[in-house]
Amino acid sequence: MASRFSFRRLALIAAALAALLTSCSTTLTLNEAATTTRIAPTTTEPTTTQTPATVARTEAPPTTIRFSELPTVSIDELPPEALDTLILIRNGGPYPYRQDDGVFQNREGILPDHPRGHYREYTIETPGSPDRGARRFVVGERGEIYYTDDHYSSFREVTSGGDR
């Protein structure tokens, strides 16, 4: 399935993924995230535990940008196949399944509400599974990443750690 992300959306997601992938065991600081992902003003602002100004002044412990109130999972805690999928997303494919890069409709409303098309979903391989398995990433157009391992019954927001 051809990618339908706009350049800006791709840039946001690529930056967020690059930050995650390069910091697997290094905390993504708020300043780094704000610089690399250039979060644009939106109706639902990401939540943080400190403002950028506070971080800059006090050199407080690093925080992670949050887009939801959902439980979190550190990228370090994800299965190894998840990193393969993140790299594919960062590169814009090619994806192994035709369903990948499809619009996630958020029918259950577990993720924060956004117009349809905000979220896209990607399969994470499950070794030994006869089918695509139950593990997915759902990626929002601002670079927010959610992980499910129970076929969309529950989600955790992916962080680089440090805010758990």
């Binding site: 996630f104 409709q105 259950e108 577990i110 695509r132 076929h151 969309y152």
Partner: peptide, 15 residues
């Protein structure tokens, strides 16, 4: 072992 929720139904139908 499918999820038995609406989003899982979307996935099943697409598959």
């Amino acid at each position: 072992d499918w999820g038995r929720n609406w989003d899982a139904l979307v996935d099943v139908a697409r598959s």
